[in-house]
């Protein structure tokens, strides 16, 4: 899947549906339709914002450990 801020929710949804077809089959993909809709909207929001590439390296939590 493309990974840039111009990627649209429709494009993401199409890729997720294709992937779901491959993994879970067409019938289960239909059953997952509302979840795929929700997830593609969330992914589009995440990808829409450019990253700050100068910050610390990614970790598993994203939370700073020191006291604020």
């Amino acid at each position: 899947m493309k990974l840039d801020p111009t990627t649209t929710q429709a494009e993401i949804k199409a890729v997720l549906r294709n992937q779901s077809d491959l993994v879970y089959g067409a019938q289960r993909t239909q059953e997952l339709a509302s979840q795929i809709e929700h997830l593609s909207t969330m992914l589009a929001e995440v990808i829409r914002r450019p990253l700050d590439l100068t910050g610390p390296a990614p970790d598993s939590s994203g939370i700073l450990s020191e006291r604020s």
Binding site: L43, V46, G62
Partner: peptide
């Protein structure tokens, strides 16, 4: 996408 979400979270 997951890595991007984690970076945004930070």
């Amino acid at each position: 996408y997951l890595v991007q979400a984690q970076r945004h979270r930070r």
